[in-house]
Each structure stands twice: as structure tokens, then as C-alpha cells.
Amino acid sequence: MANFIRKGEWLEYHVSSTDQGKTIEEVCKTKLQLSGRMIQKLTRHRGIQINGKKSYLAYPLKKGDRLQIKIFEREDYGVEPEPIPLEVLYEDDHVLVANKPAGISVHPTEKNQRGTLAHAIAFYYQTKGLQTKVRHIHRLDKDTTGAILIAKHSLAQSILDKDLRERKISREYLAIVSGIPEPKQGTIDEPIGRDRHHPTRRRVSKTGDRAVTHYQVLETMNNEAALVKLYLDTGRTHQIRVHMSYIGHPLFGDSLYGGPLKGIQRQALHAAKLIFFHPFTKEKVEVEAPMPEDMVQLLSLIQPMATHGRVK
């Protein structure tokens, strides 16, 4: 983890020659990406130390100093831990990537709601002796599967939330759609807003928010279906489902947007790859989530009718 080491409740940063002469406050803002507000809060609670002792923000750092920030404090999970199976795709002291199954929400949206991914993560934390709030960085629809990013403390959340706003976090999706999109690679740039006639449905609307979806056909099955890779420039609710339906190729199993109701009990949509920059090392992290069994079975069901192979 380069110059960053966890020591109990503290994140320790080993000061290098490039930081020589800089103040604690400068390094906290540049290397640790602490906001001024977070620095003030930590200072009030004696959460910033140098070489194990309380110091002041204007202290000029020397090579070899150990700057310590108290960010791993014990806190409430935010939900009651529940023994729900959890597949972890990637994990370190700062982040966790889970593979969300179909049929569960990312977090509670109603009072006393149980059985969400957040409940499963809280239980996983509990088994690991970790007591911290469950902090999701982005969301997936209840019936969409795949990789989802979780921050394990408030500083990681702050950094990753900023990265998400600045589009430094990207997700690649796989979908099985009705028919064959033409052209086989393209961009859908159509605004999405609420459907006045349905409480949960969205639709393409001139008065909606801008939404941009890029797609590429990976494989075609006769004229019946295609396996499509997608990635988004924006993150509107139901964006992929709305856009693919709008161009006449709704997802299999997606009853809300007119998809064929055969071979799968949900919309055939999977977050297959998550790409982000580690909040501290800044290394590029790519995490892949294997295609779920119900989508594999759907492909095998349609596959015998295939007349075209994989699209190059």
C-alpha cells in the first residue's frame, strides 16, 4: 500500500523526501485528500498525530516522519447484520467490491426493510471483527447483478464519491437484448425523465436529464437476440433499460420496458466490470464479476438458433 499503512484505528503515512518542509495541513489535503472540514473535525478530536504524538497543522514535516490520521474508528453498521451469503470480488483496508445477486436491493429504501446487500455486508464485517458503517458508492437496480463498490471508512467514501462525480469510476455492463441493434456499435444520447403514467417507470423525455449510453454488440443469435456490452457517461435510473427499449431492443425479462418474458425471471443485465482508482495508492483497479447463471442459461437457450458468431 505504498506509504500508507493501517495501525489499528490509525492510517499511517510515511513522509518521503518530496514532502520535506510541507506542513501537516498541506500533506493532509494533497496526499490524503482530506477536506478542510474533515481536518477541522479530526483536529478537534485529536485525530491527527505526528510520530505518535499530538501536533499542530503548521508543523513542517521531515523525511521519515509518521503522519497518523484516525479514520478507522468503530461505528454503527447503519443496518442490522444478517447472515446473507456474500461474494467478495476485491477487498483491502479501504474498499470492498461485492458481487450483488439478483432480487435484493443495495440498501434499505423503506422503514424496517431487511435482506438487502447492506445487511449482508454488515454481517460480513461482523465476522471479520470490523465495525464500520456500510457505505455504497453507487447503486444497482434490485434485479441487476454484478460488481458494486463499497467504501470501508468515511475518508475513502469522500474520495470515491468525488471520483464518481468526476466520472473517474467506470462500469461495463452486459445485457441480452431482443433483436440485433444496428449499427452494431453506437451511442444513445437521449434525455430520461419520469413517466407520468407509472410510479417507477422512466422514459425518454425532452424535459428529462441528459443520459448517454454507449453499446457494442458482442454476439448475435439469429434475429432473435444479441449479447451487448454497454457503458455509461451518466447514471440515470434504469438508463440502460430505457435506452435499449427506446431503440427497439428491450432487455430479455424486462417486463417494465417491454422485453421478451422468456428464459429468465428478471431483466438480463449484469455489471460485469468495475474500474476505479484506489483512493490512496491511485493505482488503477479493475474488478470483473462473472456472468450469473441465469444469463448463461438464457444464452444457451437462445444459442442453438445462432447464425452469426461473435462480432469482431
Score class of each variant (00 low, 15 high):
98 A>S: 01
304 P>A: 07
71 I>R: 04
208 G>H: 07
265 Q>F: 04
100 K>F: 01
95 V>T: 04
185 Q>R: 13
208 G>P: 01
33 Q>I: 05
101 P>Q: 05
112 N>K: 13
270 H>V: 07
4 F>M: 08
56 Y>S: 15
39 I>L: 02
288 E>H: 07
140 L>I: 14
200 T>I: 14
272 A>C: 07
58 A>N: 15
195 D>I: 05
75 E>M: 10
246 Y>W: 15
126 Q>V: 06
198 H>W: 09
252 F>A: 04
51 N>F: 03
133 K>Y: 13
92 D>S: 14
247 I>V: 11
194 R>E: 01
38 M>W: 08
223 N>P: 00
284 K>Q: 15
101 P>E: 13
112 N>L: 11
8 G>P: 05
312 K>C: 03
209 D>E: 15
240 I>R: 00
160 L>G: 04
170 S>N: 15
53 K>N: 04
46 R>M: 08
306 A>E: 01
255 S>W: 14
79 V>P: 01
223 N>S: 12
40 Q>M: 01
171 R>P: 00
261 L>K: 13
308 H>L: 08
31 K>W: 08
265 Q>W: 09
81 P>G: 05
206 K>F: 11
160 L>V: 07
24 I>A: 08
153 H>Q: 13
56 Y>D: 10
29 K>F: 11
117 L>N: 06
273 K>E: 09
178 S>K: 12
184 K>F: 15
97 V>Y: 03
244 M>R: 09
172 E>L: 06
197 H>S: 13
301 L>D: 05
186 G>P: 01
181 P>C: 12
291 M>I: 12
217 V>H: 04
47 G>I: 06
214 H>G: 03
44 R>G: 00
217 V>F: 09
209 D>W: 05
42 L>F: 06
139 R>D: 06
73 E>W: 15
288 E>R: 13
241 R>L: 05
284 K>G: 01
36 G>T: 09
90 Y>V: 10
260 P>C: 04
26 E>K: 04
107 H>E: 08
133 K>G: 00
173 Y>H: 02
304 P>G: 06
250 P>G: 10
311 V>N: 10
